[in-house]
Design a protein around this nucleic acid. Structure first.
Ligand code: FES
Ligand code: FES
Lengths: 164, 164
DNA sequence: TAAACTGTATCTATTATAATTACACTAATC
DNA sequence: GATTAGTGTAATTATAATAGATACAGTTTA
């Protein structure tokens, strides 16, 4: 998972906490420790997905573009499209091998399911819930959430037929 | 997901299909299109996790070290420890910021759950089930198989993209 | 002892990622 | 309408991650 994702989340937390303030790329970059041009690029992706509002010109900048309760880690994930589960195959020579094609199809199939499960899981976390959690200092074990998601994954397996 | 993982899976499929044969790193490397030294390194990790048997010396090499039905994508994932969901943070300056520490804790918490869910999902796929699936696709027309998978993938995409 | 292997470290090449620079375009204000 | 402060985005450079290549110590068989 590249840092674009964590920076995007960090920025959205900052924006959600200050709904009335317009941040420019310079001030945001200081807040989240990344280069202003990089902030602009990331914010631009988030704008295209309706997560932030951007405004050009004098006095312009960034502000929250959606309800923090609806701004889930899944939507951010889709906006950034970092594809951490994308399979990478060896550099050369795979194309000619028909056996390899079949292996790749099946693996891609399995990991499409994995990706979908991940997105469903991430959909349970919103910027709002993250902020609330940072405000409570006590942490609870992740078991509960993992258990809930396991049900969904089992449903998915059943639907697409993981085991034979 | 780096290619170590796909190479490991590929090798295990080869080994599982030929339980009586001992492959050396040279012959395996030709089969899966990677450098022999890399194969040795990957096989070494798999041996440490009991997935393959390795033998040094003359006539040595690699063979399957477990039941292909028990050799799940999760166990391979754990052996390779590629950590695709590991969060990466911006390079500099995060350490001093106490607010950042809390954000990182919560994000780590969320993604620990994601990782567990992923491993539980991957535990439903075994080398044996992958092989069976590749054999199904042989008996079927390859285009039908490809179309079927595409349908599944499109259904996933539709569901995911539909909210936007 | 020689041959054929794995195991592993190290160096180099390649690729992916991030930082930086640059500049066209936009909008507010004087 | 000119100036100023901002985004959007491409191009370049620097850095980090990954993969390939080489080398050689250790192991087993013959
Ligand atoms: S942490 Fe969000 S950026 Fe340093
Ligand atoms: S390695 Fe080329 S594909 Fe398994």
């Amino acid at each position: 998972m590249n840092s674009q994702y964590t920076i995007a989340v960090h920025c959205l937390i900052v924006l959600a906490k200050t709904p009335d303030h317009v941040w420019n790329s310079e001030s945001l970059s200081q807040k989240v420790h990344a280069h202003p041009a990089r902030i602009r690029k990331i914010m631009s992706s988030l704008r295209k997905n309706g997560l932030v509002e951007t405004k050009e010109g004098l006095g312009g900048g960034y502000r929250m573009g959606c309800d923090p309760r609806a701004c889930t880690l899944a939507r951010i994930y889709q906006s950034i499209s970092c594809e951490p589960l994308k399979l990478s195959w060896c550099a050369t020579g795979c194309a000619q091998d028909p056996e390899f094609d079949r292996i790749r199809s099946v693996m891609d199939f399995a990991f499409t399911g994995a990706e979908r499960g991940l997105e469903e899981y991430l959909d349970h976390w919103s910027i709002d819930s993250l902020i609330k959690r940072t405000e409570q200092s006590v942490t609870q074990e992740p078991e509960t959430m993992a258990a809930g998601i396991n049900e969904q994954m089992n449903a998915h397996i059943k639907k697409i037929g993981g085991e034979g």
